[in-house]
Amino acid sequence: MNAPNRHLLGIEGMAPPTILEILDLAESYALLNRSGKTRRDLLRGRTLINLFFEDSTRTRTSFELAGKRLGADVINMAVSQSSVSKGETLVDTATTLNAMNCDLLVVRHNRSGAPALLAQKVDAAVINAGDGTHEHPTQALLDALTIRRRKGRLEGLVVAICGDIAHSRVARSNILLLTTMNCRVRVVGPPTLIPTAIENFGAEVFHDMRAGLAGADIVMALRVQKERMSGGSVPSAREYFAFYGLDAAKLAYAKPDALVMHPGPMNRGVEIDSAVADDPTRSLIREQVEMGVAVRMAVLDLLARGGI
């Protein structure tokens, strides 16, 4: 058995027992959260800093809530573009944070590998809250927990991840986690949005929603950035919606009991139709947000106790 990892930088290299440990602990936090008896003293006296170089109300709030429910002192630092343009480097920021004796550092950055660089320079445990097009490990863990709660298992499920796979850290972390847990993972999208060699990681590639969704238990739609749909990768938003937007007609290709997920925030009418997103019998989107807090509590708990 390897020594526990002091940081959570990605799903890459994570073994099934570790994933199960996090999911089981998160499950217990989900139950506690629902019972309302959530406030614990586990992280009393510990400082959690949310260091966000990129805007994300959703993920930041989720970590903030998770930290507070465990009793940590939570500080949000939104690093404005101005201090970056003033020449303060990531390493300068790390030095500053070290001086503040921060225990847990949650980092969101628009560059792949930025949390790994910070992890080399700070004493705190670093949690990757999304780096560039690399990984978003807590998103993959919360997605897995959401799926497991509704389907009772992960193994053998067919999960279709649809949309801009190339620029998605959510897709990468999910592919790594779900294939590790023996799901059958498919990626569905236009060839310009499928990254090279993604099949090396166990994902099956489809360019057609009908084929890609056939027999799927879970359909995950990914956000597509507007700038990708101005001719560089995709000609237009309407063409994208016509062929890859998840609406009821396309969802009908999947299993009758297939469930829909989206990491948020959604572009309604682009990658997902409101009728699908808001259908309480099919959509897990609300539950994903709820599980997000539970998963982040589990991650903070484990890291505060020494590692994952």
């Binding site: 890459e12 792949s112 590998g113 780096d131 560039g132 097009t133 690399h134 990984e135 850290r169 990468r172 990254p195 090279t196 060699a197 993604i198 090396n200 990681f201």
Partner: peptide, 15 residues
């Protein structure tokens, strides 16, 4: 270099 490694690391590749 574009390929499995760049994809895994989330780095923009050059073919």
């Amino acid at each position: 270099t574009e390929g499995a490694r760049a994809t895994l690391m989330g780095l923009p590749g050059i073919p």
